[in-house]
Computed example of a mutant assay.
Amino acid sequence: MSDIETVGLGFYWEDLPVGRKFKTVGRTVTEADVVAFVSCTGMLEVLFINTEFQKHESAIQGRVAPGALAYTFAEGLLVQATMQGTGFAFLHMEMDIKGPTHVGDTVHVECEVIECRESKSRPGFGLVRTRNRVVNQNGDVVLVYTPLRMVKGRGGAH
């Protein structure tokens, strides 16, 4: 039925003026997440796979997750909430890991649009840069990154 609205679709670039802020729902990092992530990426560093090293030699206490896992969780939360059907390309980013993410932490993303303009090279699309702060349940910022994305416009670009 074409007269039924589809929910969960992404923002168009015109919906993202500079200064707009929003946040995602949270997601808890589990032991299974860390094991699966380090296994599938090959990040088999002792910091992530050796509990004796973690207990006795690591400078970071507790069961820590790779910063790359925190980043990919943030991207997953954002894709689900803001880019379904409208996200076109991930073009660039700068990233700064501010602190550790541990098993048991619940993270969410606080997003602020810091640049938004129509694409000159791709009519019907816009370029949107956001400042994404990955925040844990204690309010600690564990990661900040600034992706530049190409986003579909309302004009029906394909």
Rank of each mutant, 00 (worst) to 15 (best):
L77Q: 03
T24D: 01
T51M: 07
D3H: 00
G19H: 12
R154Y: 13
V7M: 08
N138Q: 09
A81Q: 13
I4E: 13
E110G: 02
C40S: 09
R63E: 13
G87C: 03
R122E: 03
D33H: 05
L69R: 02
I4R: 14
G85S: 09
F88G: 02
V38S: 00
G87D: 05
A36F: 13
R20D: 11
R154N: 11
R131P: 00
R154E: 14
E57K: 08
A32W: 09
V46N: 01
G99K: 12
V29D: 08
G42S: 11
P17S: 05
F48G: 01
V35D: 14
G126M: 05
Q80C: 08
M83Q: 13
T146I: 06
G126E: 00
I4G: 00
T28Y: 03
L16T: 04
V35K: 11
P17K: 02
T101G: 06
V38A: 07
S39W: 01
D105S: 06
N50D: 15
V38H: 03
S39P: 04
Q84S: 14
V107N: 08
G19R: 12
D33N: 12
T28P: 05
I114P: 01
Y71N: 14
Y71L: 15
S39G: 15
G10P: 02
D105W: 05
D96E: 15
V25R: 07
Q80F: 06
A157W: 08
R154L: 15
G62T: 11
V113L: 08
K120D: 06
K98Q: 15
L78Q: 12
V107A: 02
L148R: 13
L143H: 04
L44N: 10
C40W: 10
T41P: 07
L78K: 14
G153S: 11
V38F: 03
C111M: 12
V35H: 01
V25G: 11
A70V: 09
E52Y: 04
H56S: 11
F37G: 06
S121M: 09
E52L: 11
C40R: 10
T130W: 06
M43W: 10
L47T: 09
V38K: 07
G155W: 06
R154A: 10
A36Q: 13
H56A: 05
R133F: 00
R149W: 03
Q84K: 15
G76H: 08
F48W: 08
P123T: 07
T6D: 07
G126H: 01
L91I: 09
S2L: 14
S39F: 09
Y12G: 05
K152P: 03
P147K: 03
V103S: 12
G104F: 06
